[in-house]
């Protein structure tokens, strides 16, 4: 059974629909799947999640969670979905424990009833249980918000950018928690602007300007990259990137951590036999431009390379 089904959803804002946030989105997520909506700010992630959370209405198209329609069945739907908005939306003046009790009461349950589900997360919050939610650190706020979204044991969990504004350590902990929640059979739809988090999902949709660029497993997305790719470095990175962009065989060149990723114009097909000679040529070119500390390697494309390639081609 598909836990989430989205068919041709469209949503516009402003006078006469001037801003098209979602432009005919279709996707489906299997029960128990961890599905990522990956895209930059303004891609349409929040609009999609709000429609699924029954908070706003689509202009056109249909969407179902657990076979319940997001518009027609919204009342029944709300009791079986957990939603964590992008902006921290708990009561800042209530303590950790008061927030949790409040959300449990709203859903007609008690903290004890589903404590197993939140136990791993809540033990980290427990030392601060009497602290006001507004006074928690970013990472702790996210954990509390997740507890509140889980307190009624939802079948589908919608998380809007849980990693934004949270430092890398807390972010990693948060993803570890999602993996554990998956083992309870909860279907999770999570949005993020961080391309590297795609690898932590079962499947992802790359979203840009309200459209899906690609939808597959992370490995499937990486496998679809069509050009030979090199990781290059030298002692002067900024000049290196500029020089590489001027190299006749270059299609694109961007900084990737300590390396620059250089994509070639030619296709990947049959390239393996030429790889060594191209690398030698490249090395020679950079030496002629007086670069030092040159290193040229074949690179495996990541999801971010794929995203850049498909936005550049548009």
């Amino acid at each position: 059974m598909q836990a989430i089904v989205v068919e041709q959803i469209t949503k516009s804002y402003g006078a006469k629909g001037a801003v098209k946030a979602l432009d005919g989105i279709s996707l489906s997520v299997a029960k128990g799947e961890l599905f990522g909506i990956i895209g930059p700010d303004g891609a349409g992630k929040t609009s999609l999640l709000r429609i699924l959370a029954t908070l706003i209405l689509p202009d056109a198209g249909e969407a179902y969670l657990q076979n319940l329609h997001v518009v027609r069945d919204y009342k029944r739907l709300r009791s079986l979905l957990g939603y964590m908005p992008g902006r921290f939306s708990l009561y800042q003046d209530l303590s950790v424990q008061e927030n949790l009790s409040f959300f449990a009461a709203v859903f007609g349950t008690r903290i004890e009833d589903n404590y197993d589900l939140i136990k791993d997360i809540y033990v980290q919050l427990e030392p601060f249980k009497n602290r006001r939610a507004g006074a928690l650190s970013g990472g702790m706020k996210q954990k509390l918000a997740l507890c509140c979204a889980l307190i009624h044991k939802p079948e589908v969990l919608l998380l809007d950018e849980p990693g934004t504004g949270v430092d890398p350590v807390s972010r990693k902990e948060f993803w570890d928690m999602l993996q554990r929640l998956k083992s309870w059979g909860i279907t999770i739809l999570v949005s993020t602007p961080n391309m590297d988090e795609a690898e932590l999902c079962d499947r992802v949709a790359l979203l840009h300007n309200g459209r899906i660029l690609a939808m597959d497993t992370p490995a499937g997305i990486r496998g679809s990259y069509e050009r030979p790719l090199f990781a290059v470095r030298s002692d002067e990175m900024y000049r290196l990137i500029q020089d590489l962009r001027q190299w006749p065989g270059a299609y694109s060149c961007y900084a990737f951590g300590e390396y620059a990723h250089l994509a070639l114009q030619q296709s990947l097909q049959g390239f393996d036999t030429q790889a060594d000679s191209v690398m030698a040529e490249l090395q020679q070119y950079l030496e002629s431009r007086h670069h030092t500390g040159i290193e040229v390697l074949r690179a495996e494309p990541g999801v971010e390379d794929c995203f850049i390639a498909s936005t550049k081609d548009r």
């Binding site: 891609a43 602007p193 990137i241 995203f307 850049i308």
Partner: peptide
């Protein structure tokens, strides 16, 4: 560059490098 798409993020860094130069 929080939340900015990867391509624009790199264009932004080009501006940073340029200013540093």
């Amino acid at each position: 560059t929080s939340g900015v798409d990867p391509l624009t993020r790199r264009q932004f860094w080009d501006l940073i490098y340029e200013a540093a130069a």
